[in-house]
Amino acid sequence: MSTPAKRRLMRDFKRIQLDAPSGVSASPVPDNVMYWNAVIIGPADTPFEDGTFRLAMQFDEQYPNKPPLVKFLSTMFHPNVYATGELCLDILQNRWSPTYDVSSILTSIQSLLNDPNISSPANVEAANLYKDHRSQYVKRVRETVENSWNEDDSDEDEDGEDEEDDDE
């Protein structure tokens, strides 16, 4: 049944398809518009550059009056991302506004990558390295970037033509 939340999500989908922000993409899972998958490319000229970070989003019928749950599925090393992949971002909690949509959420997460808020870290180690040992921090981040490529088996094949062939 069509509900305001679902209609809004379909609008968000149309929006992100027609006018996608740079380096992010998202779509609802095939059988349920309340669950979305998303990919954020690490911004250029940052340690996260070219990472292909996967996320999942879960909306409920209160959207957009309530924010979605957002979770990194790729392993992250970032001061504001918990080990579980959940992230600590004000606009997804107390500073949420119903004017946000999927595009703006993903854009915010993208810019959070290189602009962490270290005052209330979700990952203390990442926050400390970021503050005091930047080169080590960068090294750890680069590792997650490389991992993010490996998660997709078919990634080495840029054309993605034989993605069906390499079922494990």
Partner: peptide, 25 residues
């Protein structure tokens, strides 16, 4: 399990995101 179930979707999404990324660049 999730990543596996939606592997194809993620492959497509990665390509799309890369394309817009490259285009803006």
């Amino acid at each position: 399990g999730w990543l596996k179930k939606y592997r194809e979707e993620f492959t497509t999404l990665t390509q799309t995101a890369r394309a817009t990324h490259a285009k803006k660049k």
